[in-house]
Amino acid sequence: MIPALAVITGTVVGLMAGVEFAVAFVFNPIMTALPIGPSIDARAHGGRMLGRAMPFWYFGSLIFAVLLAVFTWGTAAAASALVGAALLAVSVIMSITLLVPINNRSKTWTAQEHPADWREQFRRWDGLHYARVAVVVAGFVLVLVAGVVL
């Protein structure tokens, strides 16, 4: 059962890390390079779409990592799983306190109606997102380490 939990946890967290990596290093740079109207529209649409899915994915990843830490308690894998879960908890806290407020504002913007500092707000979100991606990837690596040392 524990090996299956490790595989499921690694898969769920890994897919989330991959999506967030792609957002940071592929999709947002593409959208930023677009003219103002399409850039704002694309990021607003992405914010609405991912804003519906990511809370479940973040909390699900955290729950799986915590379960992995609990079920491996007393083994060599437990410390890695626990630290991985702690990093995923940090990513949830970062999301709720830092990124979601910007996302909630920006997902309502249109090419015609947006604040004058829209570009600055996107840059701030992107910078915070890079930090969150680093935390999520580190959590993913530690979950994988836990699965390997079982």
Rank of each mutant, 00 (worst) to 15 (best):
P3Y: 09
L99Q: 07
V90W: 01
L67N: 08
I40N: 10
V100A: 01
D117E: 10
A77H: 04
A44C: 09
D41M: 05
A4Y: 09
A78S: 10
V12L: 10
Y58W: 07
P35F: 03
F25H: 13
G10C: 13
F122N: 14
D126E: 15
R124Q: 07
L99D: 02
A42S: 15
T32G: 08
P55F: 03
A17P: 05
G18V: 10
E120T: 11
T11Q: 09
A53H: 06
P55Y: 09
F59D: 03
I8P: 04
I2S: 06
L62D: 12
L68F: 05
L62H: 11
Y58M: 07
F59I: 05
D126N: 15
V92A: 06
S39Y: 04
M16E: 14
L144C: 12
G84V: 07
A134E: 12
G74Y: 01
A69T: 11
S106L: 10
N103Y: 00
V148P: 04
R105F: 00
V90R: 08
F25S: 13
L15G: 08
F122R: 14
I96G: 02
V12D: 11
L88I: 05
I96F: 00
Y130F: 09
R43N: 09
L144R: 09
A69M: 04
T108M: 11
R52A: 05
F56G: 14
L34W: 12
A111P: 03
A44D: 05
I96W: 01
L98H: 00
Q112N: 12
V13F: 01
P29N: 12
L68R: 10
G51W: 02
S91A: 15
A76T: 04
V145P: 01
M31L: 12
A138S: 15
M54T: 08
A69H: 02
E113Y: 11
L99M: 04
L98Q: 00
G147A: 08
A17K: 06
